[in-house]
Amino acid sequence: MHGEKRKLLFKPAAFPRKNNFTVILMNLWVFPLLAVMTIIGIIISSPAFLVFKITLRMETFRIIRLFVWIYGRGWLAIVKPFTRFQTEGLNKGDISTPCIIVPNHLSFFDTFFLAALPFNNVCFAIRSWPFRMAWYNPFMRLARYLDVEETPWEDSFEACKRELLNGAALLFFPEAHRSRDGRLGRFYSGAFKVSVATGVPVVPVCIAGTGEMYPPGQRLLRPAKVRLKALPAVSPDRFPGPYGHMEMRKHVKALMAQEIEKMR
């Protein structure tokens, strides 16, 4: 398959031209509301932060992660009229923490839909470019998200261990990039190396539909059926030895590829 021109698996034609009105309506609804929610969120986050800090004595990064999760829940509410959103394996108690979440990556808005996770103490371990968005950067820094692209691996690994010891869920996009054709891309080793080294299980989360809704390079949102499904946790105990993380990476990718194929 390498090097061949690959057929797109996204289905932009799933919503025929007669539904262009819906597409326009969706964009007129979602983007302004998202902007308003973001601005209001930025304005009220400071006083809300002080309230949480003083009354609940929560640590700064925990408060910000909670805010991010609430923001994501706001996104789910905003897009609700235009998406059929289903989750599986994401109810309270379905996933134990600490854990390492590994979703596939189809769209910029995947991170927003991950607010469907049943907990908010989530530490994103991601590449550098999201940190360059000025309006999100302060929150990402305060939430102690990890820039695993720019930070030396040894330092990232120590930070990952600290997060897992504190009971957080680490979240890696193992493909590192959004898929350009809807297919699962190659997986990088970081998440699996952390899992094997710490003994913390990996939870694969399969995402379908966000690629139809807002794939890379597209400017307009389109109505879509979005599904998130958490697969059973994969224990690193099954992958001993120096090649364990490589075997685990292949195993998890195979599980996800199989499930994503079913979800299409």
């Binding site: 691996w153 990088y188 080793s189 090649y243």
Partner: peptide, 11 residues
């Protein structure tokens, strides 16, 4: 290939 891949590459 990232820094971890280089380690895996040796393997």
């Amino acid at each position: 290939l990232d820094s971890l891949d280089r380690v895996d590459m040796v393997i």
